[in-house]
Design a binder for these strands. Structure first.
Lengths: 344, 344
DNA sequence: ACCGTTCCCGGAACCGTTCCCGGAAAAATA
DNA sequence: TATTTTTCCGGGAACGGTTCCGGGAACGGT
């Protein structure tokens, strides 16, 4: 309610012009040190705070970055977002975050909202079954800097940062092969997802590296959730086949499979069946036994995406580039009895 | 890079003044229907988009709401935030989200950032061991609308929305008492937290309601994390006391305790020891057996906080109020063998 | 004393939009 | 037809800051 102090108020109090005040506050060279001191003192005294809307308007930019992720209920995207925020805060930007709830329509609405808010650039992780290519294309044509992250679009020639899924899947499966497991069940992802063939490819690659043939009966679709993993594992066990290891498409699927195995009752984890998940979640440490999983460098992912976007904003004509990050396999009790993830 | 279309461009194309264009776009009464049509058509044709920075500057507001939460790695706050966003999006506001990483200093920095961004109001959930009361007080004195949510401040006379912790803790413990459990261990929270005595009070209340005396040996500090819960339970079992139920301060603590019990080896869950957590997390469904827990109405919490804030923005002189929400006890296999949380 | 620099400051335009106000043209009324 | 009312539109100020430009004063060197 108290009227906001402007640059003009300072000028009037000191009997000088507002341009001088502006220069003094901006610490420009052509202002008398004495008057600068006076201005700064008066600004302090009156509790002057610059009006960012005026500055944004004047400079014709908003200092807002948009981030669109498919969801943030799992800790996956929040971990990334934290680093994005940290980066842009340092550079004077605000970060607008939206989640699309895995819906292409909501994603489109979010993009629209970002556009209305006149964000200066966007970091996007697309929803499954994405249908907004036309929108991305238009945005790009209109000069909006875009960086895709983790879940990329099919748009050609974009700047993006991704994780080497294929390689990490190979490492995960090789970890099982190294322990002389051969009957390794892969609970694969939905066929519509781009990551599904990448991780499956890693699975095959590992077998090839070990000179072991792949048994196609040991590749079944496990979906994305705990429940779908539970069902797939239950049905697989019911079919009579017995695995000595399971490589889940992600952690929830692997955890669902663990529950199915425990309910089935005959097999112990990891002695009879070793379990490996993917894309490390907090729950990997909450289940019993703790789940071996591939931990992605989420902080680095966010940082890299932010850095790429800032570069694009500052130099719109820079060529598109793809950054590929490596991940890390965390070995725990679900696949190695000798590991110990318990405190003390 | 293509020059942005302004209201003036539309005016020039039509040979009319920009004030008329402005009125036409705002759908005001004093404009000829024919010219309005022409303006709208031309705006469409030129792909006109209003410059929000100019509008914000002109109207002297930013249409930005600030949300400060202590963390968002657990799904707890994200669930709340989703509803806040949904609400404010409908009302033409953008939502700026920051997380304080449970640090009072980071919280202060976030508040500062919000102030610089000139948010029109804030929804705040404070960090543990909060030291920023002076900041909240100053913000409020300067007319900033504030709503505290879930984790409130000690500032008197504030608008806030909270959950009836005490009552829900009573319900959780009564659920155990009703199943004839009497040796109920409470793994309590850190004594510095405001919620700790509330949940402990609920525990005592339940015993009182059942006319059963409380055994003080069955109240031990369990901390906040999986690891602290694990240690507390392990040490308790080592002491020789045997509980027939455990009421954890939150889900991670209860899950850590479950792991300690399983490692100990002698007792089955729930037959020998029933487990109950608090403040439902996704992991409650991921552990085996699924964990009974108190599910807080997070969506409603967010919606209510948003609604209260908007009311405060639109009517700054409205009196402060406290809204208390009830929660729901989800009974699962960890405390009731007959429950079934598995699919199909 | 004169000229050229340097230092410092004020005036004014500008960014895109809204809003107030006055007035012309058209329509309604006398 | 004259007068009043209504309808519609344009001019210009305002929002708060930045920046360009021009110029007065002080100062230096001859």
């Amino acid at each position: 309610m108290p009227k906001r102090i402007t640059i003009k108020d300072i000028a009037q109090h000191l009997g000088i012009s507002k341009s001088t005040v502006s220069r003094a506050l901006a610490d420009r060279y052509d202002v008398n040190p004495a008057t600068r001191e006076a201005v700064l003192a008066m600004a302090e005294k009156l509790h002057y705070r610059p009006n960012v809307t005026a500055i944004n308007f004047m400079s014709q930019n908003t200092k807002i970055i948009g981030v669109v992720v498919p969801e943030f209920l799992n800790s996956f995207f929040p971990r990334i977002i934290i680093e994005i925020q940290r980066f842009f805060e340092k550079h004077g930007y605000n970060v607008l975050i939206t989640q699309s709830n895995e819906s292409a329509e909501e994603e489109r609405k979010n993009l629209q909202m970002m556009e209305n808010a006149m964000v200066e650039g966007m970091i996007i992780s697309v929803v499954h079954r994405n249908r907004n290519l036309d929108y991305y294309e238009r945005l790009r044509e209109e000069g909006m800097p875009l960086v895709f992250m983790n879940r990329t679009s099919d748009l050609p020639d974009t700047t993006q940062v991704v994780i080497n899924e294929n390689k990490m899947a190979t490492a995960a499966v090789e970890h099982l092969l190294a322990a002389d497991r051969r009957r390794i069940l892969h609970l694969s992802g939905p066929s519509a997802l781009k990551k599904t063939p990448e991780r499956l490819g890693g699975y095959r690659q590992a077998f090839e590296n070990y000179g072991v043939p792949v048994n196609p009966n040991f590749i079944v679709e496990g979906g994305l959730t705990r429940d779908s993993g539970y069902r797939a594992m239950r049905d697989f066990l019911a079919s009579g086949l017995v695995p000595d290891a399971v490589f889940g498409f992600n952690d929830p699927v692997a955890i669902g499979a663990m529950m199915a195995i425990r309910r089935h009752g005959k097999y112990r984890i990891p002695q009879d069946i070793a379990m490996v998940g993917f894309s490390e979640s907090r729950s990997a440490l909450l289940v019993d036994p703790p789940l071996t999983s591939v931990e992605q460098p989420l902080g680095k992912l966010g940082y890299t995406a932010a850095k790429l976007l800032l570069e694009k904003i500052e130099n719109p004509d820079a060529p598109a580039m793809t950054v590929v990050l490596d991940a890390k396999l965390n070995i725990r009790e679900s696949s190695d009895e000798s590991a110990d993830s318990f405190p003390e």
